[in-house]
Design a protein around this nucleic acid. Structure first.
Lengths: 324, 324
DNA sequence: GGGGAATTTGCAAACGGTTGCATGAACATC
DNA sequence: GATGTTCATGCAACCGTTTGCAAATTCCCC
C-alpha cells in the first residue's frame, strides 16, 4: 500500500539508490535530478520508512523516556519539554510509565532497546548495577540519579531543601518532620542529607519519617506518626505527599498552616493551586538539558558529564510561625 | 554488537529460519530443537529486533497516542491506563504532544505513521477531512470525537453537564455563564448543547463566553466578561479553565462559592485538591476501552463501533446558593 | 516393503531502505 | 588527443526477520 522508495525511483526514472541519496545525502545528487525526484516523491506522498532505514543505519530516530508515574504532576512538564526539544531534532519519543516498579522498568527498557537510539531515565528506581548492565544496550542519560559513569542531569534538591529548613527555622519552628520518599530515590537521599545538615545548623530537631509512598496516600498515611512526634512543621518528599498530608490533617480538624506548617517539593501546578510552599524543580529545563546530553552522546559518541540545576524555595501560604 | 537471530542459529546449529519459527510459530518446530534454540537464545541474551520484524510482517507492535497537552492533568490518567493496557498485549506506546496545534498534530501523525500499527487520537483538533485522509495510512481510534466511520470512545459530557446545570438551578442560580473551550472540541460542542438544553428546561439564562483557551490563562482571561454578564455561577470547559477563573476572581477580592459558584469538567486531581465541583470524566476507562477497540481493529481488521461512557457531577465546595 | 501423508528443516526471496564500489560522462590540463 | 579529475549514477550486498516452497526424514497403513 504505502509508497516506497521504489515507486519514487520508477516515477522519476532513476535508481532507488539515487532516491535514497536525495533524502539522506542530497549533495551527492545532481540538482536537476534531485528536483525531479523530490517532485515525484511529493506527488506520490512518499515518506521514508524509518524502521527500514534503521536497519541499515542503526539509527531509529527514536528516543525512550522512562518515568515512574506519568500521573504524578512532576513528570508531565519534563516530558513535554523533552519531547518538544527532541522533535526539534527530528526525533520521536517513546514514553513509558513504570508504575514505580523496578521490574517493570527493566522490562520496558529491554523491550524498547532495539527501537531507540538512547533513553532518558527519570528518577529511575533501578539499582546502579542493573542500570550499568542495561546501558550496554542503550545509551542512557539519567535525570535525578548518579550512576557512576553515566551522563546525568540533576535537579539539586539540596539547595531548595536548605532554604526550606532555613525558612521554617526563621519562622520559629524547632521541631520539623521530614516525610521521606523511596529509598532508591536519589532526590530523597539528597533531601534527607541537606535537611539534616541545615536543621543542625539552625538548632532544629529533625524527625525523619518514612520511607513513604510518593503519593497522596503516602502523605495521608504518615499523619499519625507525624503528629506523634510533636513537630510543628513538615517537609515532604514531594508535593503529592505534602498534599496528602494536608488533606489528612484537615480531615482531622487541624489547620494548615495555623496548627502545622507544610512544605512540599516539586512546585507542581497542584501545589500552586493549593497555595503550598514548595521547592521549585526546574523540570522543563531538565528535560531539555537531558535531551541535549542524550543527542550529543548519540551523535558524537562522547559521554558528556553532569549538568546540575539549582532549586529554590517558593514561599506560599502553607507555612507560618508555629502556634502558641 | 547486538545479538541477532543469526548468532542464535549458529550457536544452536540450525538455520535462521528455524530460530525465527521458534519465536513466531513454535508449533512448527520440533520440541527438542526448540528447546535447544531457546536455550541458546537465552544464554546469548537474544531479543528479536522489532523494527526488522516489522519490515516483513508489517506489524510493529507499536501504537501511537496523540494528545493535545500532556501537562493538562486530564490526559495523564488516560495515557497511563492506555499504556498499561497496551503493554498487557505486548504493545508499546508512542505518546506525542501536539501543543494544541492542528498543524503539529498532523505532522506528528504523518511521521509516526510508518512506525505504528494504529493510533489513538484523543481530543483531536484536526478537521474530519484531515482525519479521514490520515486514516488511510494509520488505523485510528478516536476519543472524544466523532468523525464519521471511525471507531470512537466517547466520554459523554452531556450527562454530567445536565447534572451540573440542574445542580446550579437547584441551588437557586438563574444566570449561569458557560466558559466554552476550543471550537474544534467535540466535548465543547456537547457541553454547550447539553448546558443550553438543561438551562432552558430549568428557566436558567445561559451566557456563553468564549471560545477560551483550555488553560488556566484562558479561565483567568474570561473573568472580566463573566463579571459583566452578572451571572452568579459559571460552568467551565474544563478544570483548568475553572481554576484559572477561581484564581482570578480571588485576586479581585471575590470569594468562591460565596460570590460566585464555579463548576469544572474533568475531575482532575487538581480539582479534588481545590475542592472544585466538577464533572467526572472516566479517563482511565476510556483509555482502556480505546486500546481495546484499536487492537481489535488492528488484529481482526473489523471497524468496531462506538463506546460511550457516562459522566457524572461531583459536588464539592465551589458551588453554593447565590449571594443575597 | 512400498506409497502417501505428516513433520521438520533449509533455501532464498522478500520487506524498505543505505552504502561501498565501479562505471561512465563531462571537463580541465598539458 | 591522451591523461587525470570530478561528478553523477547504477549495481549489489547488506541490515534482521519472515515465509512460501521444496527437500528430507519419519511414520503409518495396507
Amino acid at each position: 500500500m504505502a509508497v516506497t522508495i521504489k515507486d519514487v525511483a520508477h516515477a522519476s526514472g532513476v535508481h532507488v539508490s539515487t532516491v535514497s541519496r536525495t533524502f539522506s545525502a542530497a549533495h551527492l545528487v545532481n540538482a536537476e535530478t534531485r528536483a525531479r525526484v523530490l517532485a515525484a516523491a511529493h506527488q506520490l506522498g512518499y515518506r521514508p520508512n524509518r524502521a527500514a532505514r534503521a536497519l541499515s543505519t542503526r539509527r531509529t530516530g527514536n528516543l525512550g523516556l522512562i518515568v515512574a508515574d506519568i500521573a504524578n504532576p512532576f513528570f508531565p512538564p519534563l516530558i513535554k519539554a523533552a519531547q518538544a526539544h527532541a522533535r526539534a531534532s527530528d526525533h520521536h519519543v517513546f514514553v513509558a510509565d513504570t508504575d514505580e516498579q523496578a521490574r517493570v522498568e527493566e522490562e520496558l527498557i529491554r523491550s524498547m532497546a532495539t527501537q531507540v537510539d538512547g533513553a532518558l531515565l527519570v528518577a529511575s528506581r533501578l539499582s546502579n548495577r542493573v542500570i550499568n548492565e542495561l546501558s550496554a544496550d542503550v545509551p542512557f542519560v539519567v535525570v535525578n540519579r548518579r550512576p557512576p559513569g553515566l551522563p546525568a542531569v540533576l535537579m539539586d534538591v539540596a539547595s531548595g531543601a536548605r532554604q526550606a529548613v532555613e525558612h521554617l527555622a526563621g519562622l520559629g519552628h524547632r521541631e520539623v518532620a521530614l516525610l521521606s520518599g523511596p529509598r532508591a530515590s536519589w532526590t530523597n537521599q539528597n533531601l534527607e542529607r541537606a535537611a539534616a545538615e541545615e536543621a543542625e545548623r539552625h538548632g532544629v530537631r529533625l524527625h525523619r519519617l518514612g520511607p513513604n509512598q510518593p503519593t497522596e496516600e503516602g502523605g495521608a498515611a504518615a499523619a499519625p506518626d507525624l503528629l506523634a512526634t510533636g513537630a510543628t512543621a513538615a517537609l515532604a518528599y514531594n508535593d503529592l505527599v505534602a498534599l496528602g498530608l494536608v488533606g489528612e490533617l484537615r480531615s482531622r480538624g487541624l489547620a494548615v498552616p495555623d496548627d502545622l506548617s507544610v512544605v512540599g517539593v516539586d512546585n507542581t501546578d497542584t501545589a500552586r493551586h493549593c497555595d503550598l510552599t514548595t521547592v521549585d524543580m526546574p523540570t522543563a529545563a531538565a528535560g531539555r538539558a537531558a535531551i541535549d546530553l542524550l543527542l550529543r552522546r548519540i551523535t558524537s559518541g562522547d559521554a558528556p558529564g553532569t549538568v546540575t540545576l539549582d532549586t529554590r524555595l517558593i514561599v506560599r501560604g502553607s507555612t507560618a510561625p508555629p502556634a502558641g
